[in-house]
């Protein structure tokens, strides 16, 4: 898996004792925006067959942002390839280091790590909160739904159901 928010969500839901189906669904919902990125990138990248299969792996927030900021098609392809490859290596080496290193942690490091997870999600969410009022409303709704449902539904399911908060963005705009 090479799409950060989905990876964190999968681990987060499973770590909280959630059902595998809920974990996968959360990861997929978070990864759905990559489909939109792919649609944006399809024409300028213009890749087919095997090259398309490889290029698809790198369709994420960062590569899309870097590619679409490039002034020419050639620069776009270069930016896409360089960003994709360097992030792919860095990300997966870090994941490996985390997997191998976590067994060595003591108690207070474990407490610290437990607090790092929600902080990481907040940091991922932050740019959206800063730039868009609609995102703030939807985020508040999502958080509220998740908290209210936590005692009621199976662990992990509340995260998935929080996606319903997207509906808030459409309330009042239909006329």
């Amino acid at each position: 898996m090479f799409t950060g928010a989905s990876q964190f969500a999968l681990v987060g839901v499973l770590g909280a004792g959630g059902a595998p189906v809920a974990a996968v669904a959360s990861a997929v919902l978070l990864g759905a925006r990559n489909t939109l990125y792919g649609l944006r990138l399809a024409a300028p990248l213009d890749v087919r067959g095997f090259r398309r299969a490889v290029a698809a792996h790198a369709v994420i927030d960062e590569t899309t942002a870097m590619a679409l900021a490039a002034p020419t098609t050639a620069a776009l392809r270069l930016a896409y390839a360089v960003t994709g490859l360097s992030l792919f290596l860095g990300w997966n080496l870090s994941t490996l280091a985390g997997a191998l290193g976590s067994g060595l942690l003591g108690d207070s490091a474990q407490v610290a790590l437990d607090a790092v997870v929600p902080a990481a999600f907040l940091a991922l969410l932050w740019p959206r909160l800063r730039h868009s009022g609609t995102d703030r409303v939807v985020a508040a709704g999502g958080a509220l739904i998740a908290l209210v449902l936590t005692p009621v539904v199976a662990p992990g399911l509340q995260v998935m159901l929080a996606a319903a908060a997207v509906g808030l963005a459409f309330v009042g705009s239909r006329r």
Partner: peptide
Amino acid sequence: LVPAALLAALVVVQ
């Protein structure tokens, strides 16, 4: 908008 809702939910759940 889906990421905003899900990330916020993950923040409070975690």
